[in-house]
């Protein structure tokens, strides 16, 4: 009875999403296909047995309590975890049919197609222009005219152009938090990636700056596939088409070496996850009963 009431409240909180109904998930528009992925840091198994498919031109949200491994899974999708010496991935991650963790795959080539926006805005200590031009430059674009074009296009896409067009040669570190994060998004878009991974991109921003970035995500999703990790469930309902709920599984066995690990509890259309969760843990989380 009590549960029933909370479900109703949760339903009321879901704002009217402007997005079209979730397109059918087909093999053809599958961008990522992860099967039985476990991720270790040394001997610690941070994430266990995650299987998830991510679809083209959709925004997929990863939600869940702290320590459930959602960021770890995200960083597996563009091999950022390679930078942590002790990290190790088991299982299969396919990106457009190619195995990401195949020995012949270059992490550099992967990251050129799969960009990432981080939790803390991290502009380079360079000018605004150079921040955006950095990616194209390392990809071999040298012509001034072409770079100018890319910088303007990317800054416009990131809804930052009007605010910075008169100070492109000023430091990127002089921007406010929200502007700096949009600069980082522009920097990511400048290399025209296929996928943009976002790791809690709004956690350091105020609601207005957050709103601008959410609008921006809606605007660019027709060209990109976006995966976003968020602690903010309202954000997930506002922006995403599909939501994956992760949780922490505790190993109560006495003397067990892995006392806790992250698992994927439920994955489905965002509306279904928030309004009609199939798993009791998802329900408890999305209705705010447990963290």
């Amino acid at each position: 009875m009590e549960q029933q009431e909370q479900k109703v409240t949760a339903k009321l909180e879901v704002p009217q999403t402007t997005t079209a109904p979730v397109p059918p998930a087909t093999e053809a528009n599958k961008i990522f296909d992860a099967k039985n992925v476990s991720i270790y840091y040394g001997s610690f198994r941070a994430v266990t047995d995650v299987s998830i498919a991510i679809y083209q031109n959709e925004i997929t949200a990863f939600i869940g309590p702290s320590g459930c491994g959602k960021t770890t899974v995200l960083r597996t999708l563009n091999r950022m975890n390679d930078l942590i010496p002790s990290a190790r991935v088991e299982g299969e991650v396919h990106y457009r049919g190619a195995s990401l963790y195949d020995k012949a795959v270059s992490p550099t080539a992967v990251r050129r197609r799969i960009g990432m926006v981080f939790q803390k805005p991290n502009p380079f200590p360079k000018s605004i222009y150079e921040n955006v031009a950095y990616g194209p430059r390392i990809n071999g674009i040298r012509k001034k005219g072409q770079l100018d074009e890319i910088v303007e296009r990317s800054l416009r896409q990131a809804a930052l152009w009007d605010e910075v067009k008169d100070r492109l040669n000023k430091s990127g570190l002089g921007l406010s938090g929200g502007q700096a994060q949009r600069l980082c998004i522009a920097r990511t878009l400048a290399v025209e990636p296929d996928v943009v991974l976002m790791d809690e991109p709004c956690s350091a921003l105020d609601p207005i700056a957050t709103g601008r970035i959410e609008d921006l995500m809606q605007e660019i999703k027709s060209q990109y596939t976006i995966v976003i990790v968020t602690h903010n469930m309202q954000q997930a309902t506002r922006v995403s088409d599909r939501t994956a709920f992760y949780s922490v599984l505790r190993n109560e066995k006495p003397g067990a070496s892995d006392t806790r690990t992250g698992v994927l509890v439920e994955y489905g259309a965002t509306q279904q996850i928030f309004e009609d969760p199939h798993d009791s843990r998802t329900q408890a989380y999305v209705t705010g009963r447990i963290g």
């Binding site: 380079f124 200590p125 950095y134």
Partner: peptide, 24 residues
């Protein structure tokens, strides 16, 4: 975080070192 930003754009380690880490 600066090194990671560069890696995430597809830079190689040498590129990251020369264009981001050393200038910083």
């Amino acid at each position: 975080s600066l090194r990671e930003a560069s890696y995430a754009l597809g830079a190689t380690k040498a590129r990251v070192t020369v264009t981001v880490t050393l200038p910083a």
